[in-house]
């Protein structure tokens, strides 16, 4: 009886958890505040470094775990495809509410970009820039954070990664209506990843939602 209690306590507050949380925090902080020159190379470099390489190295070198445990697999595809439509519906409802009852249309930053006047520029933006961002967010928040805490907190890991994502947005100064879809997809993608045990489906979900939201926005405003 005593051993079980001890083992449970050890799992939640062990040194590994603390160090992992510290790594998460350090990565987020360094991503936000690492001194760089404002050029794409450096921006991409730190994004990849702190949102991918550091977690990757931590998992492999320190935790000595397998990447498949962090969502880098395609196992329960059925679960993935089943839950995705539900999430799409929820997003659809959110689209309606946001576009109808908020001034998202007036303030969304995409409207200021000249690239929206050209499909090619838009395509490149959406499928390279947005793609990269979504991929990194999936790897870091769902893959690294959520799957790490999945064993300890179970379904609550979804909420934990969601809260940490919100904190992350706040640190970047992007906690605004412009990123409402990012916030919601972070939660729903977490659910999808939790259920499907794969980052693929959550990634697909996120990328589809974000691109569709941009398209809907452009449709409604242009």
């Amino acid at each position: 009886m005593i051993d079980i209690k001890y083992k449970e306590e050890k799992k939640l507050l062990d040194i590994e958890t603390i160090v992992t949380l510290a790594i998460v925090l350090i990565c987020m902080l360094l991503f936000s505040f690492f001194p760089i020159e404002r050029n794409y190379f450096q921006e991409i470099a730190i994004s990849l470094t702190f949102l991918f390489f550091v977690p990757f190295l931590y998992i492999k070198v320190i935790l000595k775990k397998r990447l498949v445990d962090f969502g880098f697999q395609i196992v329960k595809w059925k679960e993935g495809f089943l839950i995705m439509p539900v999430c799409f519906l929820i997003m659809a409802f959110l689209f309606y509410v946001v576009f109808k009852y908020t001034d998202f249309k007036e303030q969304y930053f995409l409207g200021n970009y000249e690239m929206t006047s050209s499909f090619l520029y838009l395509f490149v933006y959406e499928f390279i820039a947005v793609n990269l961002i979504v991929f990194l967010y999936e790897v870091f928040f769902r893959g690294f954070i959520m799957f790490y805490f999945k064993d300890k907190l179970d379904i609550y890991a979804v909420f934990v990664q969601f809260v940490i994502f919100l904190i992350f947005l706040y640190m970047l100064g992007e906690f605004s209506l412009d990123y409402i879809f990012y916030m919601v997809t972070a939660f729903l993608a977490g659910l999808i990843a939790f259920r499907s045990k794969s980052l693929l489906y959550s990634y697909l979900f996120s990328i589809i939602v974000l691109i569709v939201s941009d398209i809907i926005y452009l449709k409604l405003t242009k």
Partner: peptide
């Protein structure tokens, strides 16, 4: 950029090294 990358790598190494050190110390202690 080379300097930048160097800084970045140094940072990463520092983080991983520090994390590993803390982890190993923690495990030993446990």
């Amino acid at each position: 950029q080379m300097i930048f990358m160097f800084r970045l790598m140094l940072t990463v190494v520092t983080i991983i090294f520090a994390a590993g050190l803390v982890m190993s110390l923690g495990k030993k202690d446990c």
